[in-house]
Design a protein around this nucleic acid. Sequence first.
RNA 1: GGUCGCGUGGCCGAGUGGCUAGGCACAGCUCUGCAAAAGCUGCUACUGCGGUUCGAAUCCGCACGCGACCUCCA
Length: 493
Amino acid sequence: MSDLRKGPFHLTNTLTRRKEEFIPLRPPHVGLYVCGPTVYSDVHLGNVRSFLTFDVLYRWLTHLGYKVRYVRNITDVGHLVDDIDEGEDKIAKRARLERLEPMEIVQKYTNGFHDVMRLFNILPPSIEPTATGHLIEQIEMVKRIIDSGFGYEANGSVYFDVPRFSEHHAYGELSGRRIDELLANTRDTEGMAEKRSPLDFAIWKKADPIHLMKWPSPWGEGFPGWHLECSAMSTKYLGRTFDIHGGGMDLKFPHHECEIAQSVAADGIAPVRYWMHGNMLTVNGRKMAKSEGNGFTPEELLTGNHKLLEKGYGAMTVRFFMLQCHYASTLDFSNAAMQAAEKGLERMMAALSTLDKLRATGSDDAGVAALEQRCYDAMNDDLNTPVMIAELFEGVRLVNSIHDGKIAIDPNGLDRLRTLFRTLTNDVLGLRQEQRPDTDDRTLDAMVQEFIRMRAEAKARKDFATSDRLRDQLASWGIILKDTKEGTSWERA
RNA sequence: GGUCGCGUGGCCGAGUGGCUAGGCACAGCUCUGCAAAAGCUGCUACUGCGGUUCGAAUCCGCACGCGACCUCCA
């Protein structure tokens, strides 16, 4: 944990709405829970942003030396489509539409989700539990809630008694809601006859005979309520109280508010010490969402085959683009911003490989120690990736200047610079060279190298007409040559 | 309607009561046979109107504009 000396880590706790020093319950262990996807359709770029935010958190905590148990669930049952009482399970609905067994839907979109996570270099969690795999834990939790007096059964379903709970505990603390205001804003209570209050939410739902996904329980055949799985599974793997719970801003209410209420009701203790919420990705100022129809899938992003996309963009470009904005701010997607990110990432990755060629000839560290400290300060200040990236660009300038012989650095400084750069860009930010199938193609590379050789020969005999013709020919195929002291390299336009 | 948040230079986006990120774009210069790449230099912004202060983009109030949540959503 030597890195912890570089300063305390602060993060914004959305429960207190303040930036707080992060002190784990049982150092060096950290318990982290993040709400995962509901696997009934393809993930879109907005989802990716959220998982990316917590990926960086996970990477940073790990880098600081903490032993992180990172739990991110797969929701494979429980979300209703329409109204609270009349709705159909999302996965069951999808299964009906696609004429598949519900678990086929679950598997299909879970696989897709994992593919996307890999594409964006988002690390897998330590545990990835599913709701259907934890029915017993959920049923037990419902029992505890009933026993504590905050749950009641009605016609085979079990509801959480919000008004009663709020008489004893602070319901609405996380999202800043007041129960009387919530009641005043309640819409029509049609079809909610079973519930004592419109604010109550289902923790167990009775399944009608044709329902596809259902399990036996003390209250009859049914399925767990939507908020329950996170509470049950976080308790199982991280304990009744754990360090950090993350999720998208849009889950704050009611999902996370309900989680708190359930845990307090069942176990008598607040489940989470630090709540973290990532902000939304927007398109033309509007939240990217399935329901808005303004989302696109990673595949469309890569191919550029979508009306919002002027061209295709690599996964690493997107990752870099997102990291240039603080996680708590909204980020607007635009082609101009993506193209700027593409250029910036290229420059940074180029510096990373230039680093290998540098030689230490100086007598001091050229400011590397100070640069390192600024990078750590930025990350320790609520994961301020945009500021750290700004510092890294100062590092890029330093690398290039050393390469050009304009600045000298001593061996220790160079070592430190290499370690710093590789660690922060690869391990912490999770950036790597964009996977460009074309440039990885050995045949293509061999062909281009032959052109480069022919051009070098032409240049050697000052036949610039020929050398330029070769270069222009490559350019017309989208291959750009770059002459350096070490020779000529190439890249895709 | 209720709650919360935002409004920064051509674009994207950080940010602290005073010293005023970074990327992209643009312009000039250096290097180079030319170009690209790289380096250097320039471009000095903070919605409007009041107020607090020696001093505010940063604090307070009002106005305007935008968004999120209040129903599933990362």
